[in-house]
Simulated assay, not measured.
Amino acid sequence: MKKGVVKKVLTAVLTIAMVTSLSACGTKNNSSQTTNTTTENKKAADYKIVLLLPGPINDQSWNATNYAGLLECNQKLGTKIEYVENVKASDFESTFKEYAEKGYNLVLAAGSQFDEAVATVAPNYPKTTFCVVNGSKAVGSNVAPIFPKEYEASYIASIIAGNVTKNGNFATIGGFPNTPMEHLMDVYEKNSVEIAKKRGISAAKATRAYANSWTDVALGKQMAEQMIDNGSDTLFVYANEVGLGSIEAAKTKGAKVIGFSSDQTKINPNTVVASVVFDFKTFYVWAIQQYMNGKLTGNTVHEAGIKEGIFLPVYTDNITKETKDAVDKGIQDFKDGKVDLKKLFVK
């Protein structure tokens, strides 16, 4: 081949190579720009989010409270969060897998009972963020529980109970004896008894029982009846639907109930004389905003409580001004750092 021909061939090859290289660079840049634009323009409604509930949305307790948070997010933020109610423990893992495999961005689950299932499933679906509401286990880069410091809410409830009781005999019923439940019960019982004793009721005491159920209404009624028959005049129940049975028993036998989680005074204001409401509308909006802003990070339990304003006392006409003032003072003392509730935990 002549030199002139070789030169022309080389020039042509180099030209093709340069065009190909430039074309490839151009394609890469466009792809990058498209990805960034998609992320920047992603709207709240574009996120695929689902909330799993262990009970019905009309239980007037835990499930209803979480459902209210979902509705507030959809209305205020423009999200389209879906929900599944009455998810059984035997279906926890399969339900998590179902939504992760459908490509959901965020799977919420209401209750610490979901912790173990998340720990099992989450490692296999790194593109999905798993968030247990009231969860305490954050092992995994895509596991980011949010935790309302319930023992701070039970502290408010204890101030009401300590001032409401006539004989200082407190009955408490929990769903299951997990760590968060034990802590909130510890705070409630110790503080309410202390307040009653300061009022001159020297024999004040608290009796605790666990239903080992969230749904057995009849069991809740039976347990409450027995505790009232044994002298308890003030009940505090945190066990979802089980609490409905306890309220019915208290109504029949004339005991008083301090509602918890949702506004249970609506059930019967002469029985449930006050409630400590979890403002999960505020809590959920905060959590979803954290997620959409990339701040709901894994390996971290994201907490909120009295200082974040998510626990609100609700009173009936049965509550005196003195009791309301005591609650206000207790909340302010806590905010001022004068109260260390963790010292009340039973080790």
Rank of each mutant, 00 (worst) to 15 (best):
G294C: 08
G294K: 04
K295H: 15
K295R: 15
L296R: 12
L296V: 15
L296G: 11
L296F: 12
L296E: 11
L296H: 12
L296K: 11
T297P: 07
T297W: 08
G298T: 10
G298Y: 06
G298Q: 07
G298R: 06
N299C: 14
N299H: 13
N299M: 12
N299F: 12
T300N: 13
T300G: 10
T300E: 10
T300V: 15
V301E: 05
V301D: 05
V301W: 03
H302P: 09
H302E: 15
H302N: 15
E303G: 13
E303T: 15
E303V: 14
E303C: 13
A304H: 06
A304S: 15
A304K: 06
G305E: 03
I306V: 14
I306S: 07
I306A: 10
K307H: 05
K307Y: 03
K307Q: 09
E308Q: 10
E308F: 01
G309V: 02
G309D: 02
G309P: 01
I310N: 01
I310G: 00
I310S: 00
I310V: 05
F311C: 03
F311K: 02
F311P: 00
F311N: 00
F311W: 02
L312W: 00
P313V: 00
P313I: 01
P313E: 02
V314Q: 05
Y315S: 08
Y315F: 07
Y315N: 09
Y315W: 07
Y315T: 02
T316P: 00
T316A: 01
T316Y: 01
T316N: 04
D317W: 01
D317V: 04
D317P: 01
N318L: 04
N318I: 01
N318Q: 12
I319L: 06
I319M: 08
I319S: 06
I319W: 02
I319V: 08
T320F: 07
T320Q: 07
T320A: 12
T320R: 10
K321P: 05
K321R: 13
K321H: 10
E322Q: 11
E322L: 05
E322F: 03
E322T: 11
E322V: 08
E322N: 11
T323C: 04
T323H: 02
K324H: 03
D325W: 10
D325N: 14
D325H: 12
D325G: 09
D325P: 08
A326Q: 04
A326V: 06
A326S: 10
V327H: 02
V327W: 00
V327G: 01
V327T: 10
D328G: 12
D328S: 15
K329G: 12
K329E: 14
K329D: 09
K329R: 14
G330T: 10
G330S: 11
I331T: 08
I331L: 08
D333L: 12
F334Q: 08
F334S: 07
F334K: 11
F334A: 05
K335V: 09
K335S: 13
K335P: 03
D336H: 14
D336V: 13
G337F: 06
K338W: 07
K338D: 06
K338P: 03
K338A: 09
K338E: 06
K338G: 06
V339W: 04
V339P: 00
V339D: 02
D340T: 14
D340H: 14
D340Q: 15
L341E: 00
L341C: 02
